[in-house]
Design a protein around this nucleic acid. Structure first.
Lengths: 194, 194
DNA sequence: GTGCTATATGAACAAGCGTTCAGAACCAAG
DNA sequence: CTTGGTTCTGAACGCTTGTTCATATAGCAC
């Protein structure tokens, strides 16, 4: 026997990415087999290799897509005041990460499963994102908008704090997303000394 | 053949734990084989089963030890002022986590590889730790020492921020541990509105 | 020095892994 | 209705996995 339900190249590809994303996020890259992914898609394992050269590339593509989307979705900070830029960044980060918890999880947890070259590529993208925040913090420092000593440390602190929202916040809970954004923005603003 | 170098029960046990800790932190639980651990210890894989019933227990023991040590090393907060308690917590968290990066990494990243019962046990310990901080924040709220709105959110925010130090701080870098502690303490104090 | 026990070996087990590939089934175009 | 090319199956590949166990040794107590 061969294909039982017809030709589906346009639909199988995305399904594989979705299935891999969910399974990697839930069980971890190393713990998920190609057969599990295939089974989730409703296909045999061999068929996956029409869409990806190997398992590692599947992971890398997911991470790269996520980081690229993150960078291009980030509002451009030009021509705004430091406080507005920082507030915009805080609200953006929380909302964007909240919308794709699986991709965020993978992008943070599976770095060690990338080949050295792939790791360097993802780390570069992450660095670009962090630099955007760092530039905002430096701009606010220069203009005297706030008093934070070390912009690099503050960058790490703010990003860690904001990314942490994903570990506990659920939209069905007692707080709305915008309430969470409000409270984090207040904490960030105070933390940088504004 | 059998043992080639003698009887080592008192030394093989700890060596297994150390090897497992390092390998799990570096490559992830699922990506590390019992044979790799055994090889690191200088022993055959079968010998590991004199010290652990299975691979899962090895992971759980490492995580449980870490969380237990964390809880018992945490300074007792009684009879101090809110600000002192919070500062003590911030400095303690940074220092303690800095001393054992592998255990911290595992305790955060390998939760999904625990059986449901083991997961519940670790989560409970983590909850106890978070409650200690939350109680400090509530005490400060009640005494008017600071103005943070939601103690639960602030707890998550502070812990995420502090734990993030481990992702970038290295003692060989440009900053000393106490400088980092100082700056984070200042950011935390400001963030809670003190 | 003899015997006991704890500790280790090394082979074996069934199961699962990522990946390849010949051939079958399907769809679209002529 | 045939042809051509894309998509999938199912079996196979060599290898690794966690775990077990009979067997052998090392070191301690006597």
């Amino acid at each position: 026997m061969a294909r039982t339900t017809g030709s589906h190249s346009g639909i199988t590809g995305p399904k594989i990415r979705t299935a891999a994303l969910e399974l990697f996020a839930k069980h971890g890259f190393a713990a998920v087999s190609m057969r599990q992914i295939a089974s989730e898609v409703g296909v045999q394992a061999g068929a996956l290799y029409n869409y990806t050269p190997d398992k590692q590339s599947l992971l890398f593509d997911l991470m790269q897509s996520h980081m690229t989307e993150l960078l291009s979705a980030l509002p451009n900070e030009d021509a705004a005041q430091p406080f507005e830029m920082l507030e915009q960044f805080v609200r953006f980060h929380i909302a964007f990460h909240h919308e794709r918890p699986e991709a965020v999880f993978i992008a943070y947890m599976e770095l060690r499963n990338l080949s050295p070259e792939n790791f360097a590529l993802i780390e570069d993208l992450r660095g670009q994102y962090e630099n955007r925040l760092q530039n905002i913090l430096i701009a606010g420092q220069a203009s005297g908008a706030w008093t934070v000593k070390d912009a690099k440390i503050a960058t790490f602190a703010v990003i860690a704090m904001l990314t942490g929202v994903n570990t506990w916040f659920r939209s069905e809970g007692r707080l709305s997303l915008s309430e969470v954004q409000d409270q984090y923005w207040q904490m960030v603003r105070s933390a940088v000394g504004g």
